[in-house]
Amino acid sequence: MRIRATLGVVTGALALSVLAVPAAQADEVQGDTTISGVVVNGGKAVVVGATAKKTITVSFTVKDASGVGWAQAILYHGSDIESSDTGSVANSSDHRSTCTTVNATTSTCKATFDLEPGTEVFNFAAGGWKVWAIATGKDNDYIQKDNAKSFQVQRLSKLTANAAPEPVKKGKTITVTGKLTRANWDAGTYSGYSTQPVKLQFRKKGSSTYTTVKTIKTSSTGALSTTVKATVDGYFRYSFAGTSTTPAVNAAGDFIDVK
């Protein structure tokens, strides 16, 4: 097994200098150790706000005929762990996964990771991430997987809607304004998400279903504005379908009283 003392892309508090981490240019296997069933954040995309630290769990199953020795998982952004973007690798706080014995040959392993804006996650790193994982058997068999699981890390989105004037006479024109923003991890705030398609939707009073009226695009600052005729009492909202870097979001419905 190829061993090195540190993982070069990790710096500062994430340094792994105390660990023996195998070089990770490609998957490796020796013997019958296996890693399977890797789940990140309960199978959901990891959505991180502008300032708050996000703690997630990675779980997986390890098997070896001689029994499971230990396991470790690392999160990274890049084509492979060796070329991971600086500052975009997060390591579990205890450096190794906690493994619970299921039977003589199988263990379930878990590790927790903290993703903090401006420390582990930066705007350029939104999108696809991967899990690097290694596990050993008690007989020194091992398996190393460069991409044990792929997952998404996204910038939390927010969306508003305001319909005016209100009340309004039937048949008159109203203007629905709003704004689509998302977490700016570099600045620790929320910034407008520009040129994104957003649906204007309407729900009639007494109904539980929104229907799409039209689709418009956000401005360079994330602003939204469009006009529509008022016909009956109900709620207008904007709806954003999301992208690979930003989750879907619906604005709260704004009620229009039509006289």
Rank of each mutant, 00 (worst) to 15 (best):
E116H: 06
S244G: 09
G118K: 14
K229P: 06
G8R: 13
T105H: 02
G69R: 03
T173Q: 15
V176F: 07
A23Q: 05
V47Y: 02
T6Y: 03
V58R: 06
K145G: 02
T51S: 13
D94F: 07
V10E: 11
T136A: 08
D146Q: 12
K169F: 02
V18L: 11
V102K: 11
G37Y: 04
D257H: 07
T245E: 13
L75W: 00
K199N: 15
K169W: 02
A133W: 00
K217L: 08
I35K: 07
V40R: 00
K205H: 04
T98C: 05
A161T: 04
A104M: 04
F240R: 09
L224Q: 08
S59T: 13
V38M: 04
G222F: 07
F122T: 00
A45G: 13
A23K: 05
G42Y: 00
S208T: 14
V249D: 06
K110G: 07
K130W: 08
V258I: 12
S220F: 03
T108I: 14
A52E: 15
T119A: 05
F236N: 11
A45E: 14
A125M: 13
D64A: 10
T51R: 13
G242C: 01
V62G: 00
S84R: 15
L75Q: 02
L14N: 08
S107N: 15
G178D: 10
S97D: 15
L19Q: 14
T55M: 11
A5H: 09
I74W: 05
G137I: 08
S66K: 14
F113W: 13
A104L: 11
T175A: 05
H95Y: 11
L156I: 01
T246E: 14
A71Y: 01
P22D: 14
V153C: 04
D94Y: 11
Y76V: 12
S207K: 13
D64I: 06
A104Y: 03
F202M: 13
S66H: 10
T55H: 10
V232H: 06
T61S: 05
S66P: 04
T226N: 02
D27Y: 05
V249Y: 03
A135G: 07
L19I: 05
T221Q: 09
K44M: 01
K205V: 09
R155V: 00
V168K: 05
K149V: 00
F255H: 09
T34W: 00
T136D: 06
G87W: 06
A90G: 02
V258Q: 10
A223Q: 12
S208Q: 14
